[in-house]
Design a protein around this nucleic acid. Structure first.
Lengths: 341, 341
DNA sequence: GTGAAAGCGCTAACAG
DNA sequence: CTGTTAGCGCTTTCAC
């Protein structure tokens, strides 16, 4: 006799095995309504021993409810996003909602596809990184009729709600701190920015503040792809060869800043006596470097938590009032590489 | 007039807007069967202008097909797993399959919950990290009746198929290389291993080879949690204070090895003249360190690609023959910290 | 406390 | 090439 084809079990199977109607089995399995202890046990036993796994597809279709929250981020290879995710998960774990992650590789067209794909599963909410989306993406989000929280950035107008920091302001603050510390020949090193809007905004805020003090960026250098730590070394070397008299280097993220730091120390350059340094993000990695790098913590975990809390609250009560704009304040950390005294 | 409640659009709406039957609309939207160019255009136009997003829940229930592949990994905070994911995605992107990620935090009970949750969406396949699962998890995987590929490790018996490296063998090879280079007072530093089975297996293979040469681990030190780079420093310092005469340090991963390297260099210790070093994983980060750290590349990307390829092939043809065991060969990279000459 | 009927939005299968 | 019919497996609703 050939083995039974592995047809997935259905409620009916559990119903037959337990001698209880499908409806009651369903009630037991969902903990809904009153069921006598006797039948509950019969059902549980049958379900367990059969190894029944409910079909959420059918359940979702029938109930018009899906406990999924779509989370759309540019990348998983940048530690920033897993940290946001951790914040989201920690909050959603206290509810019956579940995050589902989609990755866009920083490409608006891919973001559009990913959103379409995810929305077609009718999630109960969307958390998406950034405020810059294609018009079609915005339209989809609006039309979905579900809570949408855009995160990480507040320099712009959200489709629905946004939680994050102002990167323009962050750039300005770092600029002020650097100027206040007395640095004047300042170089900027970062990713090529056409698609990294947040880095661009920081850059804009940064140069704006310098300009107000009549200072211009002494030099700048951009990269894309590759190991960030190694790139940080390369960029730094290139810049120092071209502009040896810089007294400060502002990096668009901590990883390239760390690479720069290591390279500069190897060259015997005094940090921050000779050259001051600052990065952005406050990544955990920094804890192990030879110098405590100045940085700015964007509060990624908190952003994730807050966004998830908004989604969860609106899931519980769609009519509830909620903050459409939550702007967090990034904490500047001077470390050992920004103060000269 | 109050705004229309945002009822999600259905096929029927597109059907009415285009004057074409639901069935034909469905055909157009899925590119199935022959449809005249005229009606195709009518339908496409209607769908676009309405902003229709198909309901995959209903589609999946009706067609009994779900294009999702469940990917279950222990963590996103260890770069290793995003890299595996990248391999999986790169292959699945050439198909109509889509990865959905679940994270277990290295906890068997959470793995069980995550698997249950994911299987209840009836995915077309499962890729899960590791071979160690609860009996209930294995039972679920077997009962699901879908392709299951366990990845990263081949020291054990898979539920269905497995793709990875033998960590015991990896540990043995590294042990042999270290002995061959003439090191004798060898310390081991790593994660607490009860739940990190792969690290444990490497450790076992490693000590086994040393034992054959009559050598015992000179000292060992374990950690859990925290910034790996900082932990690497601490562990290394602790060990050197306790056992100053070690001539080699074998770390269970590259991040703590990097921390150790930085600390040792700061102490003015000659690497590898005085102390040799090796890590594990071949993470990109290493490219930017002051010394090229010896390591072993587990071929994470390739593992992901291979697993995805097996799943995709079996999705195309469930009857197809396939490799149940794919053991890849990790490449040892001597870097600058393992050879003494 | 339990059950029967209807239907969620879509697609397989079959007619024309 | 296009339409009709009958479910997919579950939950909602209403009876009992």
């Amino acid at each position: 006799m050939p083995p039974t084809p592995p047809r997935p079990l259905t409620l009916r199977d559990v119903s037959e095995a337990s001698g209880v109607s499908e409806m009651t089995v369903s009630r037991v399995l969902r903990n809904r309504g009153d069921v006598s202890e006797a039948t509950r046990e019969k059902v549980m036993h049958a379900a367990k021993s059969l190894g029944y796994v409910p079909n959420k597809i059918a359940g979702a279709l029938a109930s018009q409810r899906v406990n999924l929250i779509a989370v759309v981020i540019p990348s998983l290879r940048n530690m920033v996003f897993p940290e946001v995710l951790a914040g989201i998960s920690s909050v959603l774990e206290t509810t019956d909602l579940q995050p589902v992650v989609g990755v866009t590789d920083y490409l608006p067209e891919k973001e559009e596809r990913v959103l379409y794909e995810m929305l077609s599963w009718r999630p109960s909410g969307v958390i998406v990184a950034g405020l810059e989306h294609s018009e079609a993406s915005r339209a989809m989000l609006r039309a979905a009729g579900i809570p949408v929280v855009e995160i990480m950035d507040t320099d712009g107008t959200p489709v629905d709600a946004m939680v994050g920091i102002s990167h323009r302001r962050a750039g300005r603050e770092m600029g002020r701190a650097i100027l206040k510390a007395g640095f004047e020949r300042i170089g900027f090193l970062g990713t090529k920015m056409p698609l990294d809007h947040r880095a661009r905004k920081r850059f804009e805020g940064f140069t704006e503040v310098l300009a107000k003090s009549g200072i211009e960026i002494a030099d700048q250098e951009f990269y894309s792809g590759g190991s960030a730590l190694a790139k940080g070394r390369e960029l730094t070397q290139t810049m120092l060869e071209r502009t040896p008299d810089v007294d400060f280097l502002y990096y668009s993220n901590d990883m390239i800043a760390a690479g720069g730091l290591l390279w500069l120390l190897e060259q015997g350059i005094d940090i921050p006596g000779q050259i001051g340094l600052a990065g952005f993000n406050g990544v955990e990695l920094l804890q192990g470097l030879p110098r405590k790098l100045a940085t700015m913590d964007a509060g990624r975990r908190e952003i994730g938590e807050t966004a998830a809390r908004i989604i969860a609250a609106r899931h519980d009560d769609p009519e509830a009032e909620y903050e459409h704009v939550v702007e967090l304040t990034p904490k500047i950390d001077f470390g050992d590489t920004l103060k000269r005294w």
